[in-house]
């Protein structure tokens, strides 16, 4: 079962929730950090990480074979190739790696080479196992690396996916094949507004969802009222406590600072499971 932990707004507690959920699921779970632009889960697990490089494909040109026919520039939808007279210019940072240019080139002047897009890492501590992605600095497109991380899942009973913030391609790529999405928010106007955007996105993708309100007693009641009006279940409310914030700042998993919350997370896991089996029926 794949549970995605997402949010529109950043900094609402996705990583905190993902770590706590994976902790209570223990050896049955694999935690997958798909926030590849700013992956943080590993900071709470171990400083020792095995990493391997991940490559995408990018075209290079052999000018001796190029006839400047312009076909490559015409098929490229991303302005990554400009054909100016006899000169063909490639802009690798705009390339999506679709392979169209190589395929249309009649002389074989274009070929694809590996381009490093980031790294995939793994680590474990006690019962907790993590796979994560680290996007290379300056690399614009994160979805290929997110897809690569997601292909590393095994036969674990639970896969917990810590998603990137926002509602555009990286978030969509991360939540796409989830059985259930937990949207973490906070009871503030920003939290509510970005929650509505994330809900619109998940409805568009037809994914089942529930809401977690973090720092639940720090703001107003509008998130709850919204969830009620929209028929979205509030699955968990996490109290606003300075000791939890301080523990997080030091890189401690929330359940270490507040072990009494373990029960709540066990119940959350069960509730998600029940909702998934309802949906499947």
């Amino acid at each position: 079962m794949k549970i995605a932990v997402a949010s529109g707004k950043g900094g609402t507690g996705k990583t905190t929730v993902s770590l706590a959920l994976a902790s209570v699921a223990g050896t049955d779970a694999l935690l997958m950090d798909c926030d590849v632009e700013e992956p943080n889960c590993h900071l709470f697990i171990s400083t020792e990480q095995q990493r391997e490089k991940v490559y995408g494909l990018m075209p290079v040109i052999d000018k001796a074979l190029c006839t400047s026919c312009g076909k490559c520039g015409k098929i490229c939808q991303f302005n990554a190739i400009a054909v100016l007279g006899d000169n063909v210019l490639l802009f690798p940072e705009l390339c999506h790696g679709c392979g169209g240019c190589v395929r249309v080139c009649p002389t074989g002047a274009l070929k694809e080479v590996d381009k490093e897009i980031g790294e995939i890492g793994g680590c474990r501590k006690d019962d907790l196992s993590l796979i994560d992605g680290h996007l290379s600095i300056g690399q614009a497109m994160s979805p290929p690396l997110i897809r690569a991380v997601k292909n590393h899942g095994g036969k674990e009973k639970y896969i917990i996916v810590d998603c990137p913030p926002g509602t555009s391609c990286p978030m969509v790529t991360a939540v796409r094949d989830a059985d259930f999405v937990l949207l973490v928010t906070e009871p503030t106007p920003f939290g509510l507004h970005d929650l509505t955007l994330a809900v619109d996105t998940l409805r568009e993708l037809k994914l089942p969802m529930g809401v977690i309100i973090n720092r639940a007693d720090s703001g107003d009641d509008k998130v709850k009222a919204y969830c009620k009006a929209e028929g979205i279940p509030v699955m968990l409310e996490i109290p606003h406590r300075r000791d939890i914030a301080t523990a997080y700042s030091r890189g401690e998993i929330m359940l270490q600072a507040a072990p009494e919350l373990s029960l709540m997370f066990r119940k959350l896991l069960k509730d998600v499971e029940n909702r998934v089996s309802e949906v499947k029926k």
Partner: peptide, 10 residues
């Protein structure tokens, strides 16, 4: 600006 280091940040 947006969070992260990817395309919208660049």
């Amino acid at each position: 600006g947006p969070p992260g280091i990817g395309c919208p940040v660049i």
